[in-house]
Write a protein that binds this DNA or RNA. Sequence first.
DNA 1: TCTGGGGTCCTAGGACCC
DNA 2: TCTGGGGTCCTAGGACCC
Length: 418
Amino acid sequence: MYALVDAVAFYASAETVFDPTIRKRPVVVLTNNDGCICATSPEARKLKIPKFEPYFKLKPYLEQHNVIVRSSNYELYADLSSRMMNVIGRFCDNQYIYSIDESFLQFTGFASIIDDWHAYGQQIRLAVWRETKLPVGVGFGITPTLSKAANHAAKKLDGYNGVAVINDGYSANEVLAKMSVTDVWGIGGRLGKKLNILGIHTALDLKKQSPKTMRKQFSVVVERTVEELNGKICLSWDEVKQPKQEIFSTRSFGERITDVNELKSSLITHCSIVGKKLRHQGSMTKRLMIFAHSSPHEDNFYKRNFLYDFPVPTSDSRIMANAVSEVLPHIFNEGVRFYKAGLGAVDLCSEQFMQSDLFNTTSDNRKLMDSLDNINKIFGKGTLRLASEQQSQSWEMRRNFLSPRYTTRWQDIPKIQC
DNA sequence: TCTGGGGTCCTAGGACCC
DNA sequence: TCTGGGGTCCTAGGACCC
Protein backbone atom coordinates (compact mmCIF):
# COMPACT_ATOMS: atom_id res chain seq x y z
CA MET A 1 0.00 0.00 0.00
CA TYR A 2 1.19 3.48 -0.85
CA ALA A 3 0.13 6.83 0.52
CA LEU A 4 0.58 10.31 -0.80
CA VAL A 5 0.32 13.08 1.75
CA ASP A 6 0.44 16.67 0.63
CA ALA A 7 -0.61 20.06 1.83
CA VAL A 8 -3.65 21.94 0.59
CA ALA A 9 -2.33 24.95 -1.39
CA PHE A 10 0.95 24.66 0.51
CA TYR A 11 2.46 28.11 -0.11
CA ALA A 12 -0.83 29.87 0.52
CA SER A 13 -1.49 27.79 3.64
CA ALA A 14 2.04 28.45 4.91
CA GLU A 15 1.35 32.18 4.73
CA THR A 16 -1.61 31.74 7.05
CA VAL A 17 0.22 29.75 9.75
CA PHE A 18 1.58 32.80 11.56
CA ASP A 19 -1.08 35.22 10.33
CA PRO A 20 -4.48 33.85 11.35
CA THR A 21 -6.17 37.09 10.24
CA ILE A 22 -5.90 35.95 6.63
CA ARG A 23 -6.96 32.33 7.17
CA LYS A 24 -10.42 32.62 5.71
CA ARG A 25 -9.50 35.14 3.06
CA PRO A 26 -8.41 34.65 -0.54
CA VAL A 27 -4.61 34.44 -0.64
CA VAL A 28 -2.29 34.10 -3.63
CA VAL A 29 1.47 33.57 -3.65
CA LEU A 30 3.71 34.80 -6.47
CA THR A 31 6.75 33.16 -8.07
CA ASN A 32 10.25 34.62 -8.06
CA ASN A 33 10.41 38.29 -9.02
CA ASP A 34 6.69 38.45 -8.33
CA GLY A 35 6.26 37.20 -11.87
CA CYS A 36 3.34 34.80 -11.84
CA ILE A 37 0.75 33.49 -9.44
CA CYS A 38 1.85 30.05 -8.32
CA ALA A 39 -0.44 29.19 -5.42
CA THR A 40 -4.04 30.02 -4.60
CA SER A 41 -5.90 29.37 -1.37
CA PRO A 42 -9.29 27.62 -1.62
CA GLU A 43 -10.98 31.00 -1.17
CA ALA A 44 -8.92 32.43 -4.04
CA ARG A 45 -9.79 29.41 -6.13
CA LYS A 46 -13.47 30.22 -5.68
CA LEU A 47 -12.76 33.54 -7.37
CA LYS A 48 -11.49 31.52 -10.35
CA ILE A 49 -8.00 32.98 -10.12
CA PRO A 50 -5.89 30.98 -12.56
CA LYS A 51 -2.45 29.68 -11.60
CA PHE A 52 0.71 30.61 -13.53
CA GLU A 53 -0.69 33.75 -15.13
CA PRO A 54 1.52 36.86 -14.96
CA TYR A 55 0.76 38.86 -11.85
CA PHE A 56 0.62 42.26 -13.55
CA LYS A 57 -2.21 41.06 -15.79
CA LEU A 58 -4.37 39.98 -12.87
CA LYS A 59 -3.47 42.80 -10.52
CA PRO A 60 -6.64 44.84 -11.13
CA TYR A 61 -8.83 41.80 -10.59
CA LEU A 62 -7.01 40.89 -7.37
CA GLU A 63 -7.36 44.42 -6.01
CA GLN A 64 -11.02 44.49 -6.91
CA HIS A 65 -11.64 41.35 -4.84
CA ASN A 66 -9.41 42.27 -1.91
CA VAL A 67 -7.12 39.32 -2.45
CA ILE A 68 -4.08 39.01 -0.16
CA VAL A 69 -0.91 38.90 -2.25
CA ARG A 70 2.40 37.47 -1.02
CA SER A 71 5.84 37.01 -2.57
CA SER A 72 7.39 33.56 -2.29
CA ASN A 73 8.89 33.23 1.18
CA TYR A 74 11.05 30.16 0.57
CA GLU A 75 12.81 30.44 3.91
CA LEU A 76 9.47 30.05 5.66
CA TYR A 77 8.14 27.35 3.33
CA ALA A 78 11.29 25.23 3.55
CA ASP A 79 11.21 25.32 7.32
CA LEU A 80 7.50 24.53 7.61
CA SER A 81 7.98 21.79 5.04
CA SER A 82 10.61 20.03 7.11
CA ARG A 83 8.45 20.23 10.23
CA MET A 84 5.49 18.82 8.32
CA MET A 85 7.59 16.01 6.81
CA ASN A 86 8.87 15.06 10.24
CA VAL A 87 5.37 14.60 11.55
CA ILE A 88 4.28 12.58 8.51
CA GLY A 89 7.40 10.41 8.76
CA ARG A 90 6.31 9.18 12.18
CA PHE A 91 3.45 7.31 10.55
CA CYS A 92 5.56 5.11 8.29
CA ASP A 93 9.21 4.13 8.40
CA ASN A 94 9.46 4.24 4.62
CA GLN A 95 8.98 7.84 3.54
CA TYR A 96 10.07 9.54 0.37
CA ILE A 97 9.90 13.31 0.23
CA TYR A 98 8.89 13.94 -3.33
CA SER A 99 8.63 17.72 -3.37
CA ILE A 100 8.47 20.58 -0.92
CA ASP A 101 4.93 19.65 0.07
CA GLU A 102 4.44 16.03 -1.00
CA SER A 103 5.64 12.84 0.52
CA PHE A 104 5.05 9.26 -0.49
CA LEU A 105 4.80 6.55 2.13
CA GLN A 106 5.18 2.86 1.43
CA PHE A 107 3.63 0.32 3.76
CA THR A 108 5.10 -3.18 3.50
CA GLY A 109 5.22 -6.22 5.73
CA PHE A 110 3.61 -5.72 9.11
CA ALA A 111 3.07 -2.05 8.37
CA SER A 112 0.61 -2.96 5.63
CA ILE A 113 -1.70 -4.72 8.08
CA ILE A 114 -3.73 -1.70 9.05
CA ASP A 115 -7.41 -2.49 9.19
CA ASP A 116 -8.79 1.01 8.92
CA TRP A 117 -6.91 3.15 6.44
CA HIS A 118 -9.46 5.92 6.68
CA ALA A 119 -8.90 6.27 10.39
CA TYR A 120 -5.14 6.12 9.91
CA GLY A 121 -5.33 8.90 7.33
CA GLN A 122 -7.34 11.06 9.71
CA GLN A 123 -4.74 10.50 12.41
CA ILE A 124 -2.05 11.82 10.06
CA ARG A 125 -4.12 14.88 9.19
CA LEU A 126 -4.87 15.64 12.80
CA ALA A 127 -1.24 15.30 13.89
CA VAL A 128 0.03 17.57 11.10
CA TRP A 129 -2.62 20.15 11.86
CA ARG A 130 -1.92 20.10 15.58
CA GLU A 131 1.80 20.49 15.20
CA THR A 132 2.13 22.76 12.16
CA LYS A 133 -1.31 24.30 11.47
CA LEU A 134 -1.04 23.07 7.89
CA PRO A 135 -4.01 21.27 6.28
CA VAL A 136 -3.05 18.09 4.42
CA GLY A 137 -4.84 15.57 2.25
CA VAL A 138 -4.07 11.84 2.41
CA GLY A 139 -4.58 9.37 -0.42
CA PHE A 140 -3.99 5.64 -0.12
CA GLY A 141 -3.56 3.49 -3.22
CA ILE A 142 -2.14 0.16 -4.31
CA THR A 143 0.19 1.92 -6.77
CA PRO A 144 1.85 5.34 -6.59
CA THR A 145 -0.40 6.67 -9.37
CA LEU A 146 -3.52 5.42 -7.57
CA SER A 147 -2.36 7.02 -4.32
CA LYS A 148 -2.02 10.27 -6.24
CA ALA A 149 -5.54 9.82 -7.57
CA ALA A 150 -6.85 9.08 -4.08
CA ASN A 151 -5.10 12.19 -2.81
CA HIS A 152 -6.83 14.22 -5.50
CA ALA A 153 -10.18 12.79 -4.45
CA ALA A 154 -9.42 13.43 -0.78
CA LYS A 155 -8.85 17.12 -1.39
CA LYS A 156 -11.02 18.01 -4.35
CA LEU A 157 -14.05 15.73 -4.41
CA ASP A 158 -17.07 15.96 -2.16
CA GLY A 159 -17.60 13.46 0.60
CA TYR A 160 -14.01 12.42 1.30
CA ASN A 161 -13.10 14.85 4.05
CA GLY A 162 -9.38 14.82 3.37
CA VAL A 163 -8.80 11.06 3.14
CA ALA A 164 -9.48 8.62 0.31
CA VAL A 165 -8.57 4.94 0.01
CA ILE A 166 -8.16 2.89 -3.15
CA ASN A 167 -7.49 -0.70 -2.10
CA ASP A 168 -9.15 -2.67 -4.89
CA GLY A 169 -10.54 -2.37 -8.41
CA TYR A 170 -13.95 -1.41 -7.16
CA SER A 171 -12.82 1.56 -5.09
CA ALA A 172 -10.51 2.57 -7.94
CA ASN A 173 -13.41 2.73 -10.39
CA GLU A 174 -15.52 4.69 -7.98
CA VAL A 175 -12.89 7.41 -7.58
CA LEU A 176 -11.61 7.45 -11.16
CA ALA A 177 -15.12 7.83 -12.59
CA LYS A 178 -15.39 11.19 -10.85
CA MET A 179 -12.04 12.47 -12.07
CA SER A 180 -11.28 14.15 -15.35
CA VAL A 181 -8.51 12.47 -17.32
CA THR A 182 -6.24 15.49 -16.84
CA ASP A 183 -6.49 15.03 -13.07
CA VAL A 184 -4.44 11.87 -13.47
CA TRP A 185 -0.77 12.19 -12.54
CA GLY A 186 1.21 12.54 -15.77
CA ILE A 187 -1.70 13.59 -17.99
CA GLY A 188 -1.60 17.30 -18.70
CA GLY A 189 -3.63 19.63 -20.86
CA ARG A 190 -2.08 18.68 -24.20
CA LEU A 191 -2.47 14.94 -23.79
CA GLY A 192 -5.92 15.55 -22.34
CA LYS A 193 -7.10 17.18 -25.55
CA LYS A 194 -5.81 14.33 -27.69
CA LEU A 195 -7.38 11.75 -25.38
CA ASN A 196 -10.70 13.62 -25.48
CA ILE A 197 -10.75 13.27 -29.26
CA LEU A 198 -10.48 9.51 -28.78
CA GLY A 199 -13.49 9.64 -26.47
CA ILE A 200 -11.44 9.35 -23.29
CA HIS A 201 -12.77 11.91 -20.85
CA THR A 202 -12.64 10.51 -17.33
CA ALA A 203 -9.79 8.83 -15.51
CA LEU A 204 -11.87 5.65 -15.62
CA ASP A 205 -12.01 5.85 -19.43
CA LEU A 206 -8.23 5.96 -19.43
CA LYS A 207 -7.99 3.00 -17.09
CA LYS A 208 -9.97 0.88 -19.57
CA GLN A 209 -7.55 1.50 -22.45
CA SER A 210 -5.07 -1.06 -23.68
CA PRO A 211 -1.60 -0.12 -22.39
CA LYS A 212 0.07 -1.30 -25.60
CA THR A 213 -2.15 0.90 -27.76
CA MET A 214 -1.51 3.87 -25.51
CA ARG A 215 2.20 3.33 -25.89
CA LYS A 216 1.94 3.28 -29.66
CA GLN A 217 -0.28 6.33 -29.84
CA PHE A 218 1.44 8.39 -27.15
CA SER A 219 4.42 7.26 -25.16
CA VAL A 220 5.82 4.87 -22.63
CA VAL A 221 4.74 7.32 -19.92
CA VAL A 222 1.05 6.99 -20.82
CA GLU A 223 1.40 3.21 -21.06
CA ARG A 224 2.80 3.04 -17.54
CA THR A 225 0.07 5.35 -16.27
CA VAL A 226 -2.65 3.02 -17.62
CA GLU A 227 -0.96 0.01 -16.02
CA GLU A 228 -0.72 1.82 -12.71
CA LEU A 229 -4.40 2.79 -12.80
CA ASN A 230 -5.12 -0.93 -13.16
CA GLY A 231 -3.19 -1.75 -10.03
CA LYS A 232 0.02 -2.94 -11.67
CA ILE A 233 3.03 -1.28 -10.09
CA CYS A 234 5.26 0.24 -12.76
CA LEU A 235 6.75 3.03 -10.73
CA SER A 236 8.32 0.74 -8.18
CA TRP A 237 9.47 2.32 -4.97
CA ASP A 238 13.02 2.38 -6.27
CA GLU A 239 11.86 4.01 -9.44
CA VAL A 240 9.91 6.71 -7.66
CA LYS A 241 13.00 7.38 -5.61
CA GLN A 242 15.48 7.18 -8.47
CA PRO A 243 18.28 9.72 -8.56
CA LYS A 244 17.71 12.55 -10.97
CA GLN A 245 19.19 12.30 -14.43
CA GLU A 246 19.79 16.00 -14.68
CA ILE A 247 19.99 18.83 -12.20
CA PHE A 248 19.44 22.47 -13.12
CA SER A 249 19.64 25.74 -11.31
CA THR A 250 18.34 28.77 -13.16
CA ARG A 251 16.96 32.13 -12.16
CA SER A 252 15.62 35.22 -13.86
CA PHE A 253 17.04 38.47 -12.55
CA GLY A 254 15.14 41.06 -10.56
CA GLU A 255 16.77 43.66 -12.79
CA ARG A 256 18.33 43.03 -16.19
CA ILE A 257 22.08 42.46 -16.15
CA THR A 258 24.55 44.01 -18.57
CA ASP A 259 27.77 43.55 -16.64
CA VAL A 260 29.97 40.55 -17.31
CA ASN A 261 31.03 40.13 -13.70
CA GLU A 262 27.49 40.15 -12.43
CA LEU A 263 26.59 37.48 -14.96
CA LYS A 264 29.61 35.48 -13.86
CA SER A 265 28.83 35.68 -10.16
CA SER A 266 25.23 34.65 -10.75
CA LEU A 267 26.35 31.62 -12.77
CA ILE A 268 28.85 30.64 -10.10
CA THR A 269 26.09 30.85 -7.50
CA HIS A 270 24.23 28.30 -9.62
CA CYS A 271 27.36 26.10 -9.57
CA SER A 272 27.16 25.97 -5.80
CA ILE A 273 23.48 25.06 -5.87
CA VAL A 274 23.91 22.34 -8.49
CA GLY A 275 27.06 21.03 -6.77
CA LYS A 276 25.25 20.71 -3.49
CA LYS A 277 22.34 18.86 -5.08
CA LEU A 278 24.71 16.52 -6.91
CA ARG A 279 26.59 15.66 -3.72
CA HIS A 280 23.31 15.21 -1.90
CA GLN A 281 22.12 12.47 -4.26
CA GLY A 282 25.58 10.93 -4.61
CA SER A 283 26.07 11.83 -8.26
CA MET A 284 28.75 13.43 -10.37
CA THR A 285 28.45 15.14 -13.70
CA LYS A 286 30.45 14.70 -16.84
CA ARG A 287 28.88 17.67 -18.57
CA LEU A 288 27.58 21.09 -17.75
CA MET A 289 25.07 23.05 -19.81
CA ILE A 290 25.62 26.75 -19.23
CA PHE A 291 23.28 29.34 -20.67
CA ALA A 292 22.15 32.94 -20.52
CA HIS A 293 19.57 34.85 -22.51
CA SER A 294 17.71 38.11 -22.88
CA SER A 295 13.93 38.35 -22.48
CA PRO A 296 12.07 36.10 -24.90
CA HIS A 297 9.35 38.78 -24.96
CA GLU A 298 11.76 41.30 -26.48
CA ASP A 299 12.79 41.71 -30.10
CA ASN A 300 16.30 40.48 -30.94
CA PHE A 301 16.07 37.59 -28.53
CA TYR A 302 19.64 36.69 -27.61
CA LYS A 303 20.48 33.27 -26.30
CA ARG A 304 23.71 31.36 -25.84
CA ASN A 305 24.12 27.77 -24.71
CA PHE A 306 27.42 26.14 -24.01
CA LEU A 307 28.15 22.52 -23.29
CA TYR A 308 31.24 21.96 -21.19
CA ASP A 309 32.71 18.47 -20.88
CA PHE A 310 34.80 17.56 -17.88
CA PRO A 311 37.74 15.20 -18.37
CA VAL A 312 36.65 13.44 -15.16
CA PRO A 313 33.16 13.52 -13.63
CA THR A 314 32.87 15.97 -10.76
CA SER A 315 30.53 17.29 -8.10
CA ASP A 316 32.97 19.93 -6.91
CA SER A 317 31.46 23.43 -7.07
CA ARG A 318 34.88 24.98 -7.58
CA ILE A 319 35.63 22.90 -10.65
CA MET A 320 32.26 23.83 -12.07
CA ALA A 321 33.00 27.49 -11.31
CA ASN A 322 36.22 27.23 -13.31
CA ALA A 323 34.24 25.87 -16.23
CA VAL A 324 31.96 28.91 -16.02
CA SER A 325 34.92 31.29 -16.12
CA GLU A 326 36.27 29.52 -19.16
CA VAL A 327 32.99 29.57 -21.03
CA LEU A 328 31.84 33.06 -20.09
CA PRO A 329 33.37 34.91 -23.08
CA HIS A 330 31.31 32.69 -25.40
CA ILE A 331 28.09 33.56 -23.63
CA PHE A 332 28.44 37.19 -22.65
CA ASN A 333 27.81 39.89 -25.19
CA GLU A 334 28.26 43.61 -24.64
CA GLY A 335 24.96 45.48 -24.78
CA VAL A 336 22.68 42.51 -24.18
CA ARG A 337 20.26 43.01 -21.30
CA PHE A 338 20.38 39.58 -19.72
CA TYR A 339 17.11 38.40 -18.29
CA LYS A 340 17.88 34.90 -17.15
CA ALA A 341 20.86 32.62 -16.69
CA GLY A 342 21.62 29.24 -15.27
CA LEU A 343 23.25 25.91 -15.70
CA GLY A 344 22.53 22.25 -15.51
CA ALA A 345 24.44 19.06 -14.86
CA VAL A 346 23.19 16.94 -17.73
CA ASP A 347 25.21 13.74 -17.89
CA LEU A 348 25.24 12.24 -14.43
CA CYS A 349 26.86 9.15 -13.04
CA SER A 350 26.95 7.64 -9.61
CA GLU A 351 29.97 8.66 -7.55
CA GLN A 352 30.26 5.03 -6.48
CA PHE A 353 31.14 3.89 -9.98
CA MET A 354 33.08 6.92 -11.04
CA GLN A 355 35.75 6.24 -13.63
CA SER A 356 38.92 8.10 -12.66
CA ASP A 357 41.62 9.32 -14.94
CA LEU A 358 45.13 7.97 -14.54
CA PHE A 359 46.67 11.23 -15.71
CA ASN A 360 44.35 13.58 -13.93
CA THR A 361 46.15 15.55 -11.25
CA THR A 362 43.50 18.12 -10.39
CA SER A 363 41.22 15.64 -8.68
CA ASP A 364 38.50 17.25 -6.65
CA ASN A 365 38.70 17.39 -2.95
CA ARG A 366 35.55 15.73 -1.77
CA LYS A 367 36.32 16.26 1.89
CA LEU A 368 36.46 20.00 1.43
CA MET A 369 33.05 20.07 -0.25
CA ASP A 370 31.60 17.83 2.46
CA SER A 371 32.90 20.17 5.13
CA LEU A 372 31.39 23.10 3.31
CA ASP A 373 28.02 21.34 3.14
CA ASN A 374 28.17 20.43 6.82
CA ILE A 375 29.11 23.91 7.97
CA ASN A 376 26.29 25.41 5.92
CA LYS A 377 23.89 22.86 7.32
CA ILE A 378 24.76 23.82 10.88
CA PHE A 379 25.27 27.56 10.54
CA GLY A 380 22.91 28.35 7.69
CA LYS A 381 22.90 28.57 3.92
CA GLY A 382 25.74 30.66 2.49
CA THR A 383 27.84 30.75 5.67
CA LEU A 384 30.70 29.33 3.64
CA ARG A 385 30.74 30.01 -0.08
CA LEU A 386 32.94 30.54 -3.08
CA ALA A 387 34.53 33.99 -3.17
CA SER A 388 33.24 34.55 -6.69
CA GLU A 389 29.63 33.85 -5.82
CA GLN A 390 26.98 36.51 -5.91
CA GLN A 391 28.19 39.60 -4.04
CA SER A 392 26.11 42.40 -5.43
CA GLN A 393 22.48 42.57 -4.50
CA SER A 394 21.46 44.68 -7.48
CA TRP A 395 19.82 41.81 -9.34
CA GLU A 396 18.37 40.03 -6.34
CA MET A 397 14.89 38.90 -7.08
CA ARG A 398 11.98 41.22 -6.52
CA ARG A 399 9.88 40.24 -3.54
CA ASN A 400 7.70 43.23 -2.84
CA PHE A 401 5.09 41.37 -0.78
CA LEU A 402 7.32 39.29 1.41
CA SER A 403 6.01 38.12 4.77
CA PRO A 404 8.39 37.83 7.76
CA ARG A 405 10.68 34.79 7.99
CA TYR A 406 8.95 33.84 11.22
CA THR A 407 10.93 30.71 11.93
CA THR A 408 14.36 31.36 10.43
CA ARG A 409 15.35 34.90 11.45
CA TRP A 410 15.71 36.19 14.98
CA GLN A 411 14.26 39.60 14.08
CA ASP A 412 11.17 38.01 12.57
CA ILE A 413 10.16 35.71 15.39
CA PRO A 414 6.50 36.29 16.27
CA LYS A 415 5.98 38.26 19.47
CA ILE A 416 3.15 37.51 21.84
CA GLN A 417 1.82 40.44 23.83
CA CYS A 418 0.27 39.77 27.21
C1' DT B 1 9.08 52.27 -16.45
C1' DC B 2 7.26 47.94 -17.44
C1' DT B 3 6.34 43.82 -16.04
C1' DG B 4 5.90 36.92 -18.10
C1' DG B 5 8.74 30.78 -12.61
C1' DG B 6 11.55 26.76 -12.02
C1' DG B 7 12.65 21.85 -12.65
C1' DT B 8 12.73 17.27 -14.96
C1' DC B 9 12.13 13.87 -18.45
C1' DC B 10 11.02 12.20 -23.18
C1' DT B 11 11.14 12.16 -28.17
C1' DA B 12 11.50 13.36 -32.99
C1' DG B 13 14.55 14.62 -36.20
C1' DG B 14 19.08 15.87 -37.84
C1' DA B 15 24.03 14.96 -38.30
C1' DC B 16 27.37 11.85 -38.68
C1' DC B 17 29.69 7.35 -39.09
C1' DC B 18 30.63 2.96 -41.31
C1' DT C 1 6.99 6.66 -61.46
C1' DC C 2 10.88 5.95 -58.51
C1' DT C 3 13.04 3.66 -55.18
C1' DG C 4 18.49 3.05 -51.06
C1' DG C 5 20.72 0.63 -44.01
C1' DG C 6 21.50 0.83 -39.41
C1' DG C 7 23.41 2.76 -35.37
C1' DT C 8 24.75 6.52 -32.19
C1' DC C 9 24.89 10.93 -30.53
C1' DC C 10 23.15 15.54 -30.15
C1' DT C 11 19.71 19.08 -29.71
C1' DA C 12 15.55 21.63 -29.66
C1' DG C 13 11.23 21.47 -28.42
C1' DG C 14 7.31 19.26 -26.20
C1' DA C 15 5.13 17.78 -22.16
C1' DC C 16 4.53 17.27 -17.53
C1' DC C 17 4.63 18.76 -12.47
C1' DC C 18 4.05 22.18 -8.66
